[in-house]
Simulated scan of single mutants.
Amino acid sequence: MWGLFAVHISVIVVFLILGGVVRKKKGYWLISGFASRPKEEQEELIRNGYPQRMGGLLIITAIGMLILLPLMFTSFKYAMEVQFGFMIIFLMGGMIYLTKYEVPKKRKRSYVISISLFIVIIGGISALSYFSYQGYELVAKEESFEITGMYGDEWNYEDITSIELMEKLPEVTVRTNGVGLPTLSKGHFKVRGYGSSLLYIQKGSSPYIYIELKDKKIFINDKDPEQTRLWFEQVSEKAELTQ
């Protein structure tokens, strides 16, 4: 959690500094594309208040993120989604609004670009969130077992070196390539005492299955403890048959 907290603080500080430099110190060159515009356009944008408002947008976004920051220390499960969702929507919405202060000949094109970008980004994040929250299943086949869904794969029973049912999940230290949500962890993580591991974990739903393969370590469970135990029995029995 502290790593995520540090990321949030860093983003807030960067936004405050950039917004302050743009708005108070007239560092308009920090705005994307501003420095490359003709002098006449730059002057018109400044008269319209475009760069000043862009700086203000960054500052207000930072303040909003700061106000939402204490959510991380509550029992609210979706604090991260709310904070980053606010940042993206507020920033993108603000940029669309600020298009009205563009130079007239570029205003329409800027509206189209801003709105299109907003749709693409929000659509992409929504799709990623949807697939991230999708569940997974452990399917026991004759000679192999498969874990379905994102980061899923299939492994042979003969490659299993050990399998264990744990009541407590070891400490997960680092996410290297995966999805870490308030209720779900999927993908590649580092686990204390086990190193790099594949996780398919419903948080707070004990027990957990640990499967050690020749070249892979897997932790998996289901929301339903009985389903987790059934998976353990199925894989254990098949792994015994191949030995």
Rank of each mutant, 00 (worst) to 15 (best):
A127M: 13
V82N: 07
I211G: 01
S144P: 11
I209P: 00
Q243G: 13
I89L: 03
Y50E: 00
V174L: 13
R192Y: 09
V7K: 10
V139M: 08
Y194W: 10
P207G: 03
Q202W: 09
G64R: 02
E143T: 05
I220L: 08
L169F: 10
E154F: 03
Q83L: 02
V174I: 11
H188N: 15
V172P: 11
I31C: 00
F145P: 15
I218F: 01
K77V: 13
Y28F: 11
L181H: 01
Y111P: 04
T183Y: 02
I209A: 01
L98Y: 05
G124K: 12
E102T: 01
F118V: 01
M80G: 11
G193E: 00
S162W: 00
A127C: 13
L181N: 02
A79E: 02
L30C: 09
N156Y: 09
F131L: 06
I218S: 02
Y78V: 07
M80L: 13
G187L: 02
E167S: 10
F90Y: 02
K26N: 10
D224I: 15
V14F: 13
E167K: 11
I160R: 01
K39D: 07
Y133V: 15
T242K: 14
N177K: 02
A127T: 06
G152P: 12
K25P: 01
M150S: 12
P225H: 13
S116A: 07
V82T: 10
L138N: 10
L71T: 08
G55I: 00
G27T: 01
Y97S: 12
G49V: 06
Y28W: 08
G195E: 00
W29T: 10
Q42T: 00
V21C: 05
Q52R: 07
V139C: 13
Y136G: 03
P182S: 08
Y97M: 14
F73C: 04
L169Q: 09
P70V: 12
I115R: 03
Y200D: 11
Y208C: 07
L18V: 10
D222A: 14
E171C: 15
E237A: 11
L71G: 02
N156D: 11
G178W: 06
W29G: 14
S236F: 01
G123S: 03
L58F: 09
L241P: 15
A127K: 15
S114G: 04
Y101M: 06
V22H: 04
K217E: 05
F76M: 08
F76H: 05
L68N: 01
L91D: 07
E143G: 08
G204W: 00
Y50H: 01
M54W: 12
M87N: 09
W231D: 02
Y200L: 04
M166G: 01
V103Q: 14
K238S: 07
S116K: 15
G187K: 09
A6K: 09
Q234K: 15
E212I: 13
L18E: 15
L58K: 12
I89A: 06
K190W: 05
K100Q: 11
